[in-house]
Simulated assay, not measured.
Amino acid sequence: MKLDNNNHSVFLLCYHLVLVVKYRRKVFSDQMSQYAKDIFVRIGSSYNVTLEEWNHDQDHVHIMFRAHPNTEMSKFINAYKSASSRLIKKDFPEVRRKLW
């Protein structure tokens, strides 16, 4: 892997995030996964986060990503989870029926 750097340091911060669907319901499709991935890339660009790998199953998502040391990880993950949940429920109404 290539090391990242800024003016005063060299670093390599890799994270593995697993997001699970509520009640482990099997609702993720390939189209929904791609949509969630696009949201991740879009939000990650404003937080200095780079997507490395994305895998999904019907009830969870595995995300490997890199970040800078100055990234506030809790704020980024909170922003991603809020935005993706809201947008997926809006654009994929069948998910709402399966979860409630």
Rank of each mutant, 00 (worst) to 15 (best):
M1I: 11
M1K: 06
M1T: 08
M1A: 06
M1V: 10
K2A: 03
D4T: 13
D4Q: 14
N6G: 09
N6D: 13
N6Y: 06
N7V: 05
N7L: 14
N7D: 13
H8F: 12
F11D: 02
F11P: 02
F11V: 03
C14P: 01
L17G: 00
V18W: 10
V20Y: 07
V20M: 07
K22S: 05
K22G: 07
K22R: 06
Y23G: 13
Y23H: 14
Y23D: 15
R24Q: 06
R24H: 07
R24S: 11
R25D: 07
V27A: 12
V27Y: 12
F28M: 15
F28E: 12
S29Y: 00
D30V: 01
D30C: 03
S33L: 01
S33R: 07
Q34V: 15
Y35H: 07
K37Q: 15
K37D: 11
K37G: 10
D38S: 15
D38P: 14
I39R: 04
F40T: 00
F40D: 00
V41M: 12
V41R: 08
I43Y: 05
I43F: 08
I43D: 11
G44L: 03
S45K: 14
S45H: 15
S46N: 14
S46I: 04
S46E: 14
Y47S: 07
Y47H: 08
V49C: 07
V49E: 05
T50H: 13
E52D: 07
E52S: 08
E52A: 08
H56M: 12
D57E: 15
Q58H: 14
Q58D: 11
D59L: 06
D59K: 01
H60W: 12
V61L: 14
V61A: 04
H62C: 13
I63W: 01
M64K: 15
M64Q: 15
F65E: 04
F65I: 05
F65Y: 13
R66Q: 10
A67S: 11
P69D: 13
N70R: 03
T71E: 10
T71P: 05
E72F: 01
M73N: 00
M73W: 00
S74A: 10
S74N: 05
S74Y: 00
F76G: 00
N78I: 01
N78C: 04
A79Q: 13
A79C: 13
A79D: 14
K81Q: 05
A83F: 03
A83L: 08
S84W: 11
S85K: 09
R86F: 04
L87R: 03
K90V: 07
D91W: 00
F92D: 02
P93R: 06
E94Q: 02
E94K: 03
E94I: 02
R96T: 07
R97L: 12
K98Q: 01
K98D: 00
K98N: 03
L99N: 00
W100Y: 05
